Simulated scan of single mutants.
Amino acid sequence: MEKLQLTTTFAVYSSTAELPQHIAALMEQAVAVRKRSYAPYSKFHVGAALLLSNGEVVLGSNQENAAYPSGLCAERVAIFHAGAVYPDAAVVAMAISAAAESKVVTQPIPPCGACRQSIAEYELKQETPIEIYFMGEEGKVYCSESLKNLLPLTFGGEYL
């Protein structure tokens, strides 16, 4: 038997003030769209903003439904919208912000597993990494240079 050890590295910013200006602006849009999410059940609000290679910004917020799991996470709302409206544009960067109604979220909140797999599909399709910046409501911002840091053993179409 041999062991496979996987390691990953993230850039950690102490706040949005440390982010590059264009990413700070993208995160501001993620925060704004987060406030328009529909989360009456979980009371957990998430916003995502995607910067595309054509300069467009696509937004998404989580949309819940009483018939779980019919709702959709912010990241998938945004990336599926980008794929539908701008199919030839690559996703360059994604900014994600999450907040709860019951407490202040200061821990960076990464995409869930289903969102990671959906983002992976687009990263594999476009053959370029997607920078993913994520935070809570306030505090530190983590940056992953690629989805592969969040999902190192990615499942792709080559296995089918």
Rank of each mutant, 00 (worst) to 15 (best):
G47A: 03
A95C: 10
R36I: 00
H45G: 04
L26R: 07
R76S: 12
S37L: 02
T9H: 05
S37E: 07
Q21A: 15
P87Q: 07
T7V: 02
T7I: 02
R36C: 02
K125M: 12
H45V: 00
K3C: 02
P40H: 07
V77R: 10
T9F: 02
L51Q: 12
A84E: 15
A30L: 08
A39C: 13
P87M: 09
T8S: 11
P69M: 05
R36L: 09
G47T: 04
V46D: 03
R76L: 11
P111L: 08
A32G: 04
A66N: 04
Q117R: 15
E123I: 09
S14K: 13
E56P: 01
A49W: 06
R34F: 03
A95M: 08
F10Q: 03
C73A: 11
S118H: 07
F44C: 11
K103E: 15
F44N: 14
Y41C: 01
S102N: 14
G83C: 12
K103C: 13
H22E: 14
Q21M: 09
F80Y: 13
T106K: 14
C115V: 08
N62P: 02
A100G: 11
P20N: 10
A90H: 14
S15W: 00
T8D: 01
L4T: 13
A93S: 15
S118D: 11
L59N: 01
V91R: 03
Y41S: 03
I96W: 03
G71E: 02
D88W: 05
V57F: 02
V104C: 07
V57C: 09
Q107R: 12
L52P: 05
F10D: 01
S42P: 10
Q21R: 13
Y13D: 01
N62F: 01
A49V: 09
Q126I: 10
A32P: 04
A24K: 15
R36Q: 14
G60A: 02
A89S: 15
A32V: 08
A17S: 09
H81M: 12
L19G: 05
E123M: 06
K35F: 00
A82F: 10
H45A: 10
G113I: 06
T16W: 00
A82R: 11
L124I: 13
Q5I: 12
R36M: 06
A82D: 10
R116I: 03
C112I: 08
L52Y: 06
F10N: 01
A90S: 15
E101T: 12
R34H: 04
M27C: 12
A74Q: 04
P87D: 09
Y13V: 03
V85Q: 15
A99F: 00
Y13E: 03
A93M: 06
E28F: 01
I96T: 04
S70W: 01
E18G: 00
V77K: 08
S118C: 11
G71H: 01
I79M: 12
D88M: 10
A93N: 07
L52M: 12
V91L: 04
S61N: 09
S15Y: 00
G47E: 03
V33T: 13
F44D: 11
A95V: 05
H22K: 11
S61K: 01
T106Y: 07
L4I: 14
M27F: 11
A39H: 11
A74P: 05
Q29N: 11
S70Q: 13
V104S: 10
E121C: 09
